[in-house]
Nucleic acid binder design. Structure first.
Lengths: 228, 228
DNA sequence: ACTGTCAATATTGAATGCAATCTATGTGTG
DNA sequence: CACACATAGATTGCATTCAATATTGACAGT
């Protein structure tokens, strides 16, 4: 059996908190679900997962509970767990809420953002552009997450940020499906530049507008892909 | 959010859909926390809770995990669980996000609401008014939850609704503290009537505005209470 | 007397075993 | 031949046990 126990690096001399076993399982399962290595709707028995991860059922079940609370897994009493199906309706609704949250964030971000923050976002954006070849799909993907979530985090509203991240996570699978579209890819890069421009000028209203535009276009691309 | 789905169905004598043990624990613990019977910040050992609820540690820990994902409980590895402290900052931020979500819901609700829906909301509102004596504080409280959550549910956006409910839940404790203020109570009743009026006229923009106003006033009252 | 270290105890994290429940297969009856 | 029902196997839910970690208190050294 493959026991992949990557404990969080305790190498730092500081009193590092060792992560519980189920955290590893959560991270790995989440990635597998996001990358569609586990087919949406597929039911998995606990036995199978226990063998795959080399842990006992207790931490495994805890992991499933967490993923269920994130909406990636569905658990029905006595009937086992399954990967949540991708619902076009739900994806569409999630994009709508995300758009509203980004719009809310715009002015808040512009009020608080520092030049250092902007530089950091620029770096993420540039790195994203450099990772355009198909080999680095996953890196690009992670950088896109970092870009958007870092942006919203600058609002200073931790609840807003957490809510945003949670909903963003629910879209990851769907985004992943559309992540190989080169046209959308370069279009998205341009939009990121637009967004940064509004941010540099600290124009809250304009930032809101551009974020919403970007959100809307991304939603369109993802939904088209899902339907076609 | 998914916790709202698996409700125990009391009417059916058939044991076809029995709810898991931990659901009861979650419901009871949540109420105790919301009603501040468990002091914020207080740490509880699993042993104590096991004795109190008469279940074993396994379902109890599952319950704690769920409450942790709702933000009512904090769990630190090897250091036990505690009731999340009430942070004024967090309460304030949560109100802000809720206000934005209500604003988003306004037009959606007005586009879809039926006369039957309106009648149901009216009934809730009227019942709320009838429960103004201090003996029925908890009933009033529950009805207020039902009023707001039912309203947002009418948006037809399930993700919006679930997100709203989740954030609303995080505010319950703070609301409970201010729930004995007679002035705010009658003021709130008037605002509910205003809101219903905009709804009956299907004026989405106006509904948004009044929802935000109500949200803002409630936030003010709660935060004043917390600070004073 | 104060502080740092170490052992004893308490408490949580994980694993295993047992009971309850669901699902699938096969049999009998209309 | 279709359908209802019963039984066996599989799977989940819960309880208990074992292991790892944190906390508390005492003791020795400065």
């Amino acid at each position: 059996m493959a026991t992949l126990l990557n404990r969080r690096d305790p190498g730092q001399g500081s009193a590092s908190e060792r992560s519980p076993l189920h955290d590893d399982v959560v991270d790995q399962l989440r990635q597998m679900i996001i990358r569609c290595e586990l087919v949406p709707g597929e039911r998995f028995t606990e036995q199978k997962l226990v063998e795959k991860f080399g842990v006992s059922r207790t931490p495994l079940r805890e992991a499933l509970k967490i993923l269920a609370s994130e909406g990636l897994v569905e658990m029905r009493p006595h009937r086992g767990s399954s990967v949540s199906p991708i619902s076009i309706e739900e994806i569409s609704e999630t994009f709508a809420v995300l758009g509203t949250l980004e719009e809310m964030a715009g002015p808040l971000v512009c009020d608080r953002v520092s030049n250092v923050d902007i530089a950091r976002l620029e770096r993420i954006k540039d790195e994203m552009s450099s990772k355009r070849d198909a080999t680095d799909r996953n890196s690009y993907f992670e950088l896109n997450v970092a870009f958007h979530q870092s942006m919203i985090a600058l609002s200073g509203n931790a609840v807003l940020s957490a809510t945003y991240n949670q909903l963003f996570g629910k879209l990851q699978r769907a985004r992943y499906l559309v992540n190989d579209d080169q046209n959308r890819w370069s279009e998205s890069a341009r939009e990121h530049s637009w967004i940064m421009e509004a941010l540099r000028q600290r124009d809250g209203a304009e930032l809101s507008k551009r974020l919403r535009e970007h959100n809307s276009r991304t939603a369109q691309a993802v939904l088209d892909k899902l339907r076609g």
